[in-house]
């Protein structure tokens, strides 16, 4: 009797194909939707000062600083179609930074800078929710990105 039988061979092959398909989908999505995990950048103190930088009409840098128990800046106004680079840091414990509708999902860590890029193509109010336990005020820790039509600003 051979070591593995016919159905086992088949199952191994199917498993291989399925895994291949998954990996292909990840790479495809990464390319097509520019979906990626946060970027890795070394610590830089200049990034830990909360502020919004407008680079040009539709490009922004947001330096978001999480602390017990708020995000600064807490309201971020940008026009529809803007591309935003978020630089995230923490003044104290670990915090989360989640914008569900845009699949932005980062951890804010003391002594570290997290970074991701998103485009906001639809007007609306996007909540930024802290989703890592950060002490007694954790449940209050929300901020907003307000995406408006350019003329209403």
């Amino acid at each position: 009797m051979s070591v593995i039988d016919k159905s086992e061979k088949k199952v191994l092959m199917i498993s291989g194909v399925v895994i291949g398909l998954f990996i292909f989908s990840i790479l495809y999505a990464k390319d097509k939707y520019q979906s990626d995990v946060p970027e890795c950048i070394p610590f830089d103190k200049a990034y830990t000062e909360p502020r919004i930088n407008q680079i040009d009409e539709k490009t922004f840098q947001v330096f978001s600083v999480a602390s017990m128990w708020q995000f600064e800046p807490s309201e971020i106004y940008i026009p529809v179609g803007s591309e935003v680079d978020f630089y995230l840091s923490s003044k104290d414990v670990v915090h989360g930074f989640n914008i569900t509708e845009k699949n932005v999902n980062m951890m804010a860590v003391y002594g570290n800078i997290n970074k991701t890029t998103v485009r906001f193509d639809e007007p609306g109010v996007y909540k930024i929710t802290c989703h890592e336990y950060c002490g007694v005020g954790h449940e209050n820790m929300q901020a907003e990105v307000i995406v408006h039509q350019p003329q209403t600003k």
Binding site: F22, I26, A29, K30, S35, V37, N98, V104, N105
Partner: peptide
Amino acid sequence: SYSLNNVIHNT
């Protein structure tokens, strides 16, 4: 699944 994790991480 890598970037799919953005959808659900810590939710």
